[in-house]
């Protein structure tokens, strides 16, 4: 491809690159700082730990990114996760011989159905995503409570093979990390190299244009919420297996962490924008913060505020970068 882009114009890639580089730069500076304060930070075992703990967040973030690209938002994923985790763990406690793969499938299936319902409400009944997911969040949490009768499923009720889903490893790499990597590879390909994947961007960038050019906007919308649900269902199984306990308030409020990771990763809430590569750095930054703060003896009570401040700063800085690019890239045109 010939490099023809005129020098004073900054292309689509450049905007993303600047944001990603500044984010990666920040991650590196943060890591060096933490390493300086605690030399255990950049050890294999801690990095393994960090990635394992970030895996579930990162899986959810992929789904959330697609939802946000279509101008939506999903507040129900914490509840979906809890529902799927509860159902699978109860199944496992009743049938201890169940193959872990079947447990995973059950979880994904429950998530898919939950997501499909939300997708239906948003796409077919034109309910705003924030309302539909807010309502369904309540419903899913309530159902989780009902089927569990308010009781927990604890470690001793779960089979070893089930707990091994998250503790086991292949070639020395933890299963959770492996699953996350597979998910990222699959969705990287899906988003960038399939027609359906590109339609997600089209729908988010301009729903009217998409409709007029024959893209089935409803179907795409329904699809992203279903995928989100499926991923949340998968995460539910992983979560319950990892923490060896299922409660009806599992992952309550976790959707906010996921949305925050997306936003830090450069996914625009206004829709149409967001890349898998950016998302990875967003998720990583979030994971590093969670992992590193306790390591440098920051009181756990400070973590919330620091996270909030980091999100705010990340969002404001990325807005400012965009503004700078926007003004240097001004073109003569009356809007």
């Amino acid at each position: 491809m010939s490099e023809k882009s005129s020098k004073n114009k900054i292309s689509l890639e450049r905007i993303q690159q600047i944001r990603e580089f500044s984010l990666i730069g920040f991650i590196i500076v943060l890591s060096i700082f933490v390493q300086f304060r605690n030399s255990n930070f950049l050890t294999m075992s801690n990095i393994d730990d960090l990635l394992t703990n970030t895996a579930i967040l990162s899986i959810l973030a992929v789904g959330m990114m697609m939802v946000i690209i279509t101008r939506g938002i999903d507040l129900s994923i914490g509840a979906t996760l809890a529902l799927s985790g509860m159902v699978t763990s109860m199944t496992v406690s009743n049938y201890p011989s169940l193959h872990p793969l079947v447990a995973l499938l059950i979880g994904i299936f429950i998530g898919l159905i939950s997501g499909a319902i939300i997708g239906l409400l948003v796409a077919k009944f034109n309910i705003l995503p924030i309302i539909a997911t807010l309502g369904m969040m309540n419903v899913f949490r309530g159902i989780t409570f009902l089927i569990s009768g308010g009781k927990w499923v604890s470690a001793y009720q779960m089979s070893d093979s089930f707990k091994a889903i998250s503790t086991g490893s292949i070639l020395g790499i933890n299963n959770l990390i492996l699953i996350a990597i597979i998910i990222y590879l699959v969705f990287y390909y899906f988003i960038n190299y399939t027609r359906t994947g590109r339609k997600i961007y089209a729908v988010g960038s301009s729903p009217e244009s998409a409709k007029i050019s024959g893209i089935n906007v409803d179907r795409i919308t329904w699809l992203v919420y279903s995928i989100m649900g499926g991923l949340a269902g998968l995460s539910g199984v992983l979560w319950v297996s990892k923490f060896a306990s299922a409660q009806s308030n599992t992952a309550s409020g976790y959707e906010m962490n996921v949305i925050a990771a997306c936003v830090i990763g450069g996914v625009s809430i206004a829709g149409g924008e967001g890349k898998v590569t950016g998302l990875i750095s967003g998720v990583l930054l979030y994971g590093i913060l969670e992992n590193a703060l306790p390591m440098i003896n920051v009181s756990p009570f400070w973590q919330n505020a620091i996270q909030g401040a980091v999100i705010l700063i990340a969002v404001l800085v990325s807005a400012l970068i965009k503004r700078r690019i926007g003004s240097s890239n001004k073109i003569r045109r009356e809007d």
Partner: peptide
């Protein structure tokens, strides 16, 4: 997004 950030921050 703004109130999401301040929500985490204020409670923090």
């Amino acid at each position: 997004i703004v109130t999401l950030s301040t929500m985490i921050l204020y409670r923090g």
